[in-house]
Simulated scan of single mutants.
Amino acid sequence: MINPRIIPCLLIRRNGLVKTVKFKDPKYIGDIVNTVRIFNEKEVDEIILVDILATVDNQELRLDFLRDIVSECFMPVCYGGGIKRVEQIRQLFEVGVEKISINAAALETPELITEASAVFGAQSIVVSIDIKKNLLGKYSVFSHGGKQDWRRDPVEHAREVEGRGAGEILLHSIDRDGTMAGYDMPIIEKVANAVDIPVIACGGAGSLSDFKQATQAGASALAAGSQFVFHGKHRAVLVTYPSRQEIRDLFTP
Rank of each mutant, 00 (worst) to 15 (best):
G218D: 03
G225T: 15
A219E: 03
G225C: 15
G30K: 09
A217N: 11
L238S: 13
I83M: 06
V126R: 03
Y79K: 08
H172M: 11
I69P: 05
Y241P: 07
V119A: 07
Q213L: 14
T35N: 09
K19V: 11
G82F: 09
V155Y: 08
G218N: 09
L53P: 00
R244Y: 01
V199T: 08
T215E: 01
V195L: 02
A105H: 02
E43Q: 14
P242I: 01
I125G: 04
N34G: 12
Y139P: 01
A166E: 01
V95L: 01
L238T: 07
A122K: 15
P26N: 03
A201K: 11
K84N: 05
I113K: 06
F65T: 02
E156W: 02
W150L: 03
A105E: 15
K147I: 00
H234R: 14
F142R: 04
G225F: 01
H144F: 14
D249Q: 14
K132C: 10
S220P: 00
G81D: 02
A106T: 09
E156V: 12
D177C: 09
V86A: 12
F120T: 10
R151H: 13
P8G: 10
D210L: 08
P110Q: 11
D177G: 04
A217T: 02
A224S: 12
D177E: 13
L107G: 04
V33Y: 00
E160K: 14
S101V: 03
N34T: 12
P4L: 08
I200K: 06
I174M: 14
E115K: 15
I2R: 14
I197A: 05
G165L: 05
S143C: 13
D51N: 14
Q88D: 04
T35G: 08
C202I: 01
R37M: 10
F93P: 07
R248A: 13
V195C: 04
R14G: 00
L17S: 11
K233G: 07
K138T: 05
K138E: 13
D130L: 06
L66R: 08
G145S: 11
L17T: 10
I187C: 01
V141Q: 08
D68A: 15
G137C: 04
D51G: 08
F74S: 13
